[in-house]
Design a protein around this nucleic acid. Structure first.
Lengths: 190, 190, 190, 190
DNA sequence: TTGTAACCGAGACGGTACGTCTCGTCTTGCA
DNA sequence: TGCAAGACGAGACGTACCGTCTCGGTTACAA
């Protein structure tokens, strides 16, 4: 990393952005969302407060930027069955959240209740996840696996609801297979 | 309202408690959780800040007290079928939340991510609801309605997950019947 | 001491008074006048705040009561000369103040700048001391020791001024003989 | 007056300092030291409390700043005799104190009993005055006016003691000439 | 003998001020 | 010329005491 960042002209300095996001990520890890103070982030990043406010006008904006940088592109593997695929999704997301991003996403849900821009971004995240899940369900449909009457959108939402609920309940160690079984109602097929 | 509240001796004054909870409820309605400042509550209730902190040491404690006072004892009607019963539960809770308590409960979920005491109380609420739902499911079991393999606790949790998700997604006007159908997998019976 | 003091009927309880003054004295010794809080005195004395305020309505009143209880009746010895007598007075008062009452009297002077009742009591103390000093000077006059033109009241005041000044300057270890020499102008006689 | 003061960059704003000291001076004049509350000063000066505490961490520091700004450079006139010079000093100081600074200096003496930084500043004031008085006495010595055995430092201290005593006794209207006569023992020369 | 009056400890009450903290805005001076 | 540095006004935070009050109980004295 450059020892001394400064202006690179009349445009955003990527070094500064990186320093700020790193600082915010560290602080989040150390002190949680309650410790994520604009002033502290600026100080730790050796950035001016004005600079911070210029690019991330609210705590929520900063939070979102951190999360976006952490988020990896999930690829949902094909296990050959809907139940297995859903279990895979749960396992994958729980894994990410347990390792690092869980606390941040939890904070985003909390912040979304207060800051409208975060609420908007959260809605967008939800839709993104929904789209990905619909692809998984469509795959099962192509396999002819879907029971009659199942509405893909409803199932996708139920999966997201389960994910959020487990995150907010601090219960990310629950069994993804059991959860997937409930969601896909496999008992009805026995 | 009493013109003059004050000490009634070396013990808690119920008038003061009522005044504080009323003030907090009003402020929550007017300004949301972000406007729920201890200072503002004390001022509006014409109570001293020390009094406030004596009985409700954190914003979360106050929030919980407000919610507890608003909460009515839900009685889940017997509709004759599990799907109908679950739909009834969703309809009832959505109704309450839409009318008044939704914003407060949303705030509680948000606050629970920061304040441990709120988190604890929220966990307790969750268990309470779970117990009530298990009673509904047990009723269905007695009717011989439950599919083989269904784990009541899992279903109960799925219902709560749906409730929370819809609350946090500001989607309390969704169709309870459709949601209940997904939760109880009625398609498998068609 | 009685384990539990309480009312002894419709009259003042001397045990309570003693407990309060003891508590106040201890607190003054430990924490100075800044630590002399009504609340702290009541707690330490195991007395109710109402009781405290009934008998000592202000901090100043309490301060005065403590000082009055500590003050001993000074007897100014006859050394045979005015200068010696004055030196004796200084030595005696400095001794008292150094040992214990100095801090309290300093607090009284400070409190007198704020609370009128303390100011009044301080004026009274001043007069008391003046009277005692005038007796010493009168003794010298009877010995024919007084220079022509000396106004006894002026000398008495100068002695008190010196006492106060040394107390407020935290300089109670200064030499009483040297001070007495200046006050009685012995150089003029050599 | 400027309508709106604010930051002038990363350094102290003299306008703010002036506003604060003006506010403090006014409040002292109106309500005395008991009314000199940090909160009130901040409000009246339209300054933030943080700003106040940044530059004047204690009430004593504020008091000192006010006094220093009020203090004028005393020039002690040469009357041709020691007694006259001392009388002049007393008259001059009494005059200042009567007009305006007396209450403030009294407050400083009181505050010095509680706050160590004020005590320190007071000691400094004392030394300053002592030095000025020693110059007056040296002038008399050059005139050959000083009695044998007179210790200039002792006389200087006696003058200061008299000044303080009269201030604390609210007796600034006493006759400077009579006081000077006692201090310089003119009776011994008659 | 029985009020009843004043005392007592306790501590809740509405308040005020404290000193700290964070916010978001603003200049300035350095690089 | 863009950024770090940080001063600024504003005001909420949680704490500490203030002086007043009511409580429930105790004791002494008057009726």
């Amino acid at each position: 990393m450059t020892e001394k960042r400064a202006s690179i002209g009349a445009r955003r300095n990527p070094d500064t952005e990186a320093a700020v996001l790193n600082a915010a990520t560290q602080i989040l890890a150390e002190a949680g969302i309650a410790g994520l103070r604009m002033e502290a982030v600026a100080k730790r990043a050796r950035a001016g407060k004005a600079t911070l406010y210029r690019w991330w006008p609210t705590r929520g904006a900063l939070l979102l930027a951190v999360y976006r940088r952490m988020k990896t592109e999930d690829v949902y593997a094909d296990t050959g069955s809907l139940e297995g695929d859903i279990a895979g999704v749960l396992r994958l997301v729980f894994g990410h959240w347990r390792r690092e991003t869980g606390a941040v996403f939890r904070s985003i849900i909390a912040a979304a209740q207060v800051e409208p821009d975060v609420a908007e971004a959260l809605a967008e995240f939800r839709l993104e996840r929904r789209t990905a899940l619909l692809a998984v369900i469509a795959r099962a449909e192509r396999r002819g696996e879907l029971p009659a009457g199942l509405v893909p959108e409803r199932l996708a939402e139920a999966v997201i609801a389960t994910l959020w609920f487990k995150l907010l309940s601090h219960d990310l160690d629950d069994d993804p297979d059991a959860l997937a079984r409930v969601l896909t109602q496999s008992w009805s097929k026995g």
